[in-house]
Design a protein around this nucleic acid. Structure first.
Length: 558
RNA sequence: GUGCCUUUAGCUCAACUGGAUAGAGCAGCGGAUUUCUAAUCCGCAGGUUAGGGGUUCGAUUCCCUUAAGGCACGCCA
């Protein structure tokens, strides 16, 4: 038995098409299953007859009717009651979910909330998610917060679906940037001792550099007696450790825990970069020019060739990144997602080109750019200036708006959209803040169940209620929402679009508020009350589950 | 200059990846509470989907083009 109505419909429509028009014709079309825009069209529909009509050069309605003549109706999924809905309209084939299907979903959401929505049909995969990976040379910025929310939630959804997920943070603790970090701190340290010296070209000038210099020299007084080069090294190592610890702390407070912090420097300690170089060289994709070693990335869609090994024979970030990808490839993941910041979109063509050149599968390695974030305060764009000191970091934003609003807001939009974060709205505890709207619906279900208990409704009695008592339009709307949840998760994971969950929760919350407004749940009619309380349980579980996947709390009282 | 992202109601965004009458929230206006939470609900109004062209039964979605905004263009990471 197919585990979803989608699977049932697509196989059934396929076999009906074969029966009606023969295998050859049926094979020419995809069986699309979609949710109609208007509820009056049914719960699920398929435009397959429109596509077939084109191949057959026949009237779509006639094609649809012929196709449906041999359709294998199954009441466990859809209702075949012709009075319920016109099955064929304008060439679309419309279905209504059966009561049996809806009731089964409700029971599942109430009885096994810890597995509701898990996809048993899908084989479990091992999936790696790398995200944030901010340079350990300064504080994390607001776009890192967006990446953290998205990467973590996509990982949560995949884990929920039954996959084995790992979260990884790539630490760029090697090369010029970290050297500059150490030099900058050393410079501030010597300045504090009254010695001369300027921050090196391209070095870090933020206030936190002074703080690090003071903290480290206080913790490790022996730095005073060290030669400058040695002191620089110590400052570098110690600063990296401190910055990483701080990043971990902030991310943990934000609800994100990584399974692994992968250090770039470890790659350089091994022969991994040399191996990648040899591999590319063996394929004739490498050449020498101006004393450097180049990769022919222009053959792979990049605008020009890129350097792998510099004139001074040190490896570039690019080469290290390729060896990192090779390393990931040897670890046996079925899929490997990398979420990049907006500043990396120019980098992806060469990376994807090289990944292809290395023979790595592009269906395994998937890259996503998370677009920039603009802060809005009091309706005005908040222009950040490091010099003036009015710079808002990820930690600042977290402190100001809190985990719930911050994660929720970052998850409201698709990754590719440039996001305006309205700080004033996010901190507002009012009805125009969507986080509270959804949380309030959850709190309402909880207080309703508490109220029912006080009125003498026992949990057992509610659990044994008959969902067949539910007949109002508002009740069916909620049943459909619950039944829709498993598909929502599959699609969210497939398209990597977490905003589907926030959109879903908002409409779901709205449906519940409407239901609540229109119907009294706890009444003298005991069987009906129990059925409505059962429904309320399902609503509560699914909203809570959705909020959990977003990393947003589900308060029981507000 | 080149590449990438974005452009849908006054504002912020959806539209299940090419389907039916483009939908929500906020803001605006008008209503609903002797009731299980009014952080709620109901109604009204709001559109040439930035402009133009193309592809086809059908386009917000795909292609071309123009415009606007943003980001990136290093032997940094």
């Amino acid at each position: 038995m197919p585990d979803s109505v989608y699977a049932y419909l697509s196989t059934s429509l396929r076999s009906a098409a074969i029966a009606a028009f023969g295998e050859q014709t049926a094979a020419t079309v995809d069986i699309a299953i979609e949710k109609p825009k208007h509820a009056s069209h049914g719960d699920i529909s398929s435009p397959v007859a429109l596509a077939l009509a084109k191949t057959l050069k026949q009237n779509p309605v006639a094609v649809a009717n012929r196709l449906m003549a041999g359709f294998p109706w199954d009441e466990r999924y859809v209702s075949s009651d012709p009075g319920l809905e016109r099955t064929v309209a304008g060439g679309f084939i419309n279905f209504r979910l059966s009561s049996a299907y809806l009731q089964k979903a409700l029971i599942a959401s109430v009885q096994s909330p810890r597995t509701f929505g898990r996809n048993q049909a899908m084989p479990a995969k091992r999936i790696l998610f790398e995200f944030v990976s901010a340079n350990p040379t300064g504080p994390m910025v607001v776009v890192n917060g967006r990446a953290a929310a998205i990467g973590d939630t996509v990982a949560r959804v995949n884990a929920w679906l039954g996959h084995s997920v790992e979260r990884e943070y790539y630490v760029n603790d090697y090369g010029n940037q970290v050297n500059l970090l150490g030099k900058s701190i050393a410079c501030r340290y010597y300045q504090s001792l009254g010695r001369d010296g300027a921050i090196p070209e391209g070095g870090y000038e933020g206030e936190y550099i002074r703080d690090l210099a003071a903290e480290i020299s206080a913790a490790l007084p022996e730095v005073a007696s060290m030669a400058p080069a040695q002191a620089e090294e110590l400052f570098t190592a110690e600063a990296l450790a401190r910055i990483m610890a701080q990043q971990k702390e902030i991310l943990a407070a934000y609800g994100v825990r990584y399974d692994r912090w992968f250090r770039e420097s470890d790659l350089h300690k091994s022969d991994a970069p040399a191996k990648v170089l040899a591999l590319l060289r063996g394929r004739g994709l490498v050449y020498e020019k101006d004393g450097a070693v180049w990769f022919t990335s222009s053959q792979f869609g990049d605008e020009k060739d890129r350097v792998l090994v510099r004139q001074d024979s040190s490896p570039t970030y690019f080469l290290a990144d390729l060896s990192y990808h090779m390393h990931k490839a040897t670890r046996g993941f079925d899929e490997s997602y990398t979420f990049w910041g907006p500043d990396h979109h120019g980098y992806l063509p060469r990376l994807e080109g090289a990944v292809k050149a290395l023979g790595l599968s592009t269906t395994v390695f998937k890259n996503f750019i998370i677009q920039q974030v603009n802060l809005i305060r009091d309706g005005q764009p908040f222009r950040m200036s490091k010099r003036k000191g009015d710079f808002i970091t990820m930690a600042d934003l977290l402190g100001e708006v809190g985990v719930d609003a911050m994660r929720y807001f970052f998850l409201m939009r698709r990754l590719s959209s440039h996001f305006d974060f309205d700080m004033t709205l996010a901190t507002k505890k009012s009805d125009d803040n969507p986080v509270y709207y959804v949380q309030y619906a959850h709190a309402r279900t909880c207080s309703l169940l508490v109220h029912a208990q006080q009125q003498g409704f026992a949990n057992d009695e509610i659990a044994a209620a008959s969902p067949g008592m539910l007949s109002e339009a508002e009740e069916f709307a909620l049943l459909r929402r619950i039944a829709e949840f498993p598909t929502l998760l599959v699609q969210t994971a497939h398209y990597v679009e977490p905003q589907r969950i926030t959109t879903y929760l908002e409409t779901f919350a709205s449906d519940f508020h409407v239901f609540y407004q229109k119907h009294r749940i706890v009444t003298d009619n005991r069987p009906l009350s129990c059925a409505r309380l059962l429904l309320t349980c399902g609503v509560r579980n699914v909203i809570r589950l959705g909020l959990d996947l977003l990393g947003v709390s589900a308060p029981e009282r507000m």
